[in-house]
Design a protein around this nucleic acid. Structure first.
Length: 114
DNA sequence: CTGCTGACTGGTA
DNA sequence: GTACCAGCCAGCA
C-alpha cells in the first residue's frame, strides 16, 4: 500500500499534541471522506510508534477503540489510550472527550454547512 | 475473483 | 440524550 493507508498514517502523524481527530476527518484528509471504517482497520494494524493513533477517536466524541482482542486486557488498551489522551492535556470522561468540539483537529468552521 | 469483517458515520425513531 | 439501520472502504481468507 502506498496510497490510502500510507496517506492515513501520514495524516495521523501530523496531528499536533493536545488535539484529537476523528476517523472521518483523517479519511477525508487522506482523500476518502467515506473511508472512516477502513481508517479504523488501518489504525488497528498501526504499530509505528511515530503514529499517535491514540489521538484518533470516533466522530461522536468517544474514544472508539484501541488494541482490541489478542492477548489479555480487552479494554486494557483502551484504558491506556485514555491515559495517553489525558497526558496530552485532553480531559476524558469515561469513554467520551470533554470539549471535544474545541479539541478536535483540524478546527471546523462554526458555519459549516455539510 | 467473490465475500465477510471491522478502532466508522449519518440519519431516523 | 440513546438505539437501530444502511452505506462505504480497505484488507484478508
Amino acid at each position: 500500500m502506498h496510497s490510502f493507508s500510507h496517506r492515513v498514517l501520514s495524516v495521523v502523524r501530523r496531528i499536533p499534541p493536545g488535539r484529537v481527530s476523528t476517523y472521518g476527518d483523517v479519511a477525508a484528509a487522506a482523500g476518502r471522506p467515506r473511508a472512516a471504517r477502513a481508517v479504523g482497520n488501518i489504525m488497528r494494524d498501526c504499530r509505528a510508534s511515530d503514529v499517535p493513533c491514540h489521538r484518533v477517536i470516533a466522530a461522536a466524541g468517544r474514544l472508539g477503540g484501541y488494541g482490541g482482542r489478542r492477548s489479555s486486557a480487552l479494554n486494557g488498551g483502551l484504558e491506556m489510550k485514555r491515559a495517553l489522551l489525558r497526558a496530552e492535556g485532553i480531559l476524558v470522561s469515561g469513554d467520551k472527550i470533554r470539549e471535544f468540539r474545541t479539541r478536535r483537529w483540524p478546527n471546523r468552521p462554526k458555519t459549516r454547512k455539510k
